[in-house]
Structure formats: structure tokens, C-alpha cells
């Protein structure tokens, strides 16, 4: 693909340190405006809670977990994080469009089939989704935003995520390299 990159010109991606500062400024803006950092898994939880509430409202109200996220007549989809994640979708799309990276594809190692990649991605997603509820947030809400406020929880979650991924990397190497 030889589309022109309107953001960085010759290089494919932005300099990582510059992109990090940009991401940090967005994070800081979130804290300054709202008093909270960024998030992602929280919005997905809102989708799941809305689904349960629609299909089985009594069950949702009686559950210790789902009931925490249902407030009166307000749909959990009306939450701050849902609008923020819709923004991520549009922001990612704009960046990809300006950098010439749009296109339907499955990114994978040549050693594996697309089908295997999809199964692994869905399995990894399920683990990440489950873990994000256990850990009260994912890489953005718990690790990144948590570290910015210097919270112990943020540092512990960050080390647990990255440490475990390093430990298990050897066993999954064929899928990536």
C-alpha cells in the first residue's frame, strides 16, 4: 500500500516518544476536565450491562455485579466512557485515514492461518475482558491513568499485565514471530 501519509510524511508512524507526549497530554486534559483519566473496558462493560438489562431485567437487578451499573431509568450506555470510546473509534479512523492505513485485513504471522488468528484474538479478548473486570480497569483505566495519579493499584496492575505477558511470550512465539 503506497498511500501518502499526511501526518508524518515519510515515516509510517509518529515518533513513539512524541506520540507518548501527545497521549499524555490527552490523559492530562481528561484529568483536568473530568477528574478522571482515560478508559476503554468500562465502555464495553456498559454494552454488556445494557444487553443483560434488555434481555433479562429482573436478573440484572438481582445481580450484585450488574446492578451496580444500573441507575434508575438511565441506560448504562449513556455513560461518559461510552462516548469517550466512540471518540476513540472516530479518532483512530481519522488517524488511519490521514496516514493511508485504512483497509480490511487480518494482521498475523505468516506461520498461522487467518482463522487461527481470529480464534486467538477472540480468546485473548475474552481473557482481557474478564481480567479487566477483576482488576477494575484495563491498560488505559487501571494501568495508565492509575500510574498518572501515582496510585499503588496502577503500578501493580501495570507490572502484572506486562510481567505476565513477558512470562508467557515464549509459549506463544509461533503466533507472532
Amino acid at each position: 500500500m503506497s498511500h501518502h501519509n499526511y501526518i508524518t510524511g515519510k515515516t509510517k508512524y509518529m515518533n513513539p516518544y512524541l506520540a507518548g507526549v501527545l497521549l499524555g497530554l490527552v490523559l492530562l486534559m481528561a484529568f483536568y476536565l473530568t477528574g478522571r483519566g482515560l478508559g476503554a473496558s468500562g465502555a464495553m462493560k456498559s454494552v454488556v450491562v445494557t444487553g443483560i438489562e434488555t434481555v433479562a431485567p429482573t436478573k440484572a437487578e438481582n445481580s450484585d455485579f450488574y446492578s451496580k451499573y444500573i441507575q434508575g431509568d438511565n441506560s448504562p450506555l449513556n455513560s461518559w466512557l461510552v462516548f469517550q470510546v466512540l471518540g476513540v473509534l472516530v479518532g483512530g479512523f481519522l488517524s488511519g485515514a490521514l496516514a493511508g492505513r485504512l483497509g480490511w485485513k487480518t494482521e498475523k504471522s505468516p506461520n498461522i492461518t487467518s482463522k487461527r488468528r481470529w480464534i486467538l484474538a477472540a480468546t485473548g479478548g475474552a481473557l482481557f475482558g474478564f481480567g479487566s473486570q477483576f482488576g477494575r480497569g484495563c491498560t488505559s483505566g487501571a494501568a495508565l491513568s492509575g500510574m498518572a495519579t501515582l496510585s499503588v493499584a496502577g503500578f501493580v496492575t501495570m507490572m502484572a499485565i506486562f510481567g505476565t505477558a513477558f512470562l508467557f511470550a515464549y509459549f506463544f512465539r509461533k503466533n507472532w514471530i
Binding site: 476503554a40 464495553m44 485473548g124 491498560t139 510481567g163 505476565t164 508467557f168
Partner: peptide
């Protein structure tokens, strides 16, 4: 939660965001 997310990361290749 972090350990489960770490396995999810290396298996799935993404995090939610």
C-alpha cells in the same frame, strides 16, 4: 486481574483501547 489481562495480551495481541 493483571495476570489474566497479561495472558490475554500475548494471546490476543491487543488491549481493549
Amino acid at each position: 486481574g493483571g495476570v489474566i489481562m497479561g495472558i490475554g495480551f500475548i494471546v490476543g495481541g491487543f488491549c481493549p483501547g
